[in-house]
Design a protein around this nucleic acid. Sequence first.
DNA 1: GATTCAAATATATTCGAAAATCCTGCCTTA
DNA 2: TAAGGCAGGATTTTCGAATATATTTGAATC
Lengths: 242, 242
Amino acid sequence: MADGATKSGSQATHRTGAAAGRDVLARLRSDIVSSEFKPEARLKFAELTSRYDVGIGTLREALSQLASEGFVTLEAGKGFKVAPVSAEELVEITDLFINFEKRAVREAIVHGDEDWEANIVAVHHRLSLIEGLPWADRMERHAEWVQRHREFHESLVSACPGRWLLRLRSMMFDQLDRYRFVTKNSSGSAGRQKFEEHRQIMEATVARDADRAAALIETHIRDTSDRALKILAPADGAKAAV
Amino acid sequence: MADGATKSGSQATHRTGAAAGRDVLARLRSDIVSSEFKPEARLKFAELTSRYDVGIGTLREALSQLASEGFVTLEAGKGFKVAPVSAEELVEITDLFINFEKRAVREAIVHGDEDWEANIVAVHHRLSLIEGLPWADRMERHAEWVQRHREFHESLVSACPGRWLLRLRSMMFDQLDRYRFVTKNSSGSAGRQKFEEHRQIMEATVARDADRAAALIETHIRDTSDRALKILAPADGAKAAV
DNA sequence: GATTCAAATATATTCGAAAATCCTGCCTTA
DNA sequence: TAAGGCAGGATTTTCGAATATATTTGAATC
């Protein structure tokens, strides 16, 4: 801590040290996913430089990267804004992700070896350690859960040989994270159900039952998205954008 | 020309003027697609700044963008390299693009209006003006052909409401451009065939025959990729990477 | 009061220099 | 001779200042 002081450090030259760029990219994305920065909000450099304590150039590179990932938009001359969210987009992202995840897990089941299997079991175990906790404790370790949940789904498809399929799948997963966040505080009763679904997906995949794994994944993802959809578009009618 | 002189201009301050960033991004991508920079080649800032006459920061942003598009790779601390090419990747990109293009054109056929139809016909006409030319003339206007070919395929799917589907489709199309380039000088007899295929695709789409349009697109893309594959992997055997 | 234009402010964009890191060749030593 | 380590140079990465662009404010005119 005492050493990490940087900002107000008298003449602390550059403080480059570790890769600051990578850091700020992850933090910025996390702050957008967690709605710290609201959708459509302008992202001003003056504000961000002081918040993350990095230079303008580094910030610009990170924002540019996030733009190509779809988290922010860039209008030439007018700066960066947080990308909007919408029920329509959620539906589309969900469909694409399900499509990718199903294809990838099928490929993984074909090509996966014993290490792949073992890794799935291990990562699932780590996930279940959090999901088995009572609600209050689980909420406290939510950030950890997000990470382990990501690792679990990633482990399922890690043996898929298609690098681009994995890449696109990963992009969609990241986008879904944004929408998953809205259900963070309202997944009381659903927690136990997700717990069970993850176990079933793990078992079906390790057992190399591709059809069953694909089907389980589809309902699992669709279910989560539907819950987010209900919050985004309260009524069933078509309450368009604000 | 004479006015555009910038680099050696005595104390020419910044020369910012128009968006230099956007420019260098497009040029850099074009130079990678056209294999001006060979796969795996290191991209040194010293070399690029003089070539494109822009600052390091601008260059870094452009390269970072290209990295997320998959044209270059970035290893922390070691700089940027042109992304490698391989027969395996071509096969995968082709499959993904075909999948996206077929889905998108089906959606477009459902949602497209008369303006959409008219635009397809117009853009196809512009394309055919080049494709109808004798071989020598066509080669001379190859850059123009690339642009119009892109616009033609884009017009087919432009009425598809799924923004992410279009986005991913566009990514794969850009990647395919890299591989299409290797067939540039060897598509003598195939030129007439492609000409005909484009016409058929245009007609089927405008006639709202989704099944036929999808089938035509599939064979059209697959055919082009197969031609590139033969050049990349000369024998039918599995001659791995160099 | 509404509209137009211009100054002033705020913000984005670009640049080159400074610091950190990586690579290479040479020297020492066992 | 081979392994290890230490300059020296080359390259990347980061930063803040300088410039260009957009937006707002305010005054003058219709």
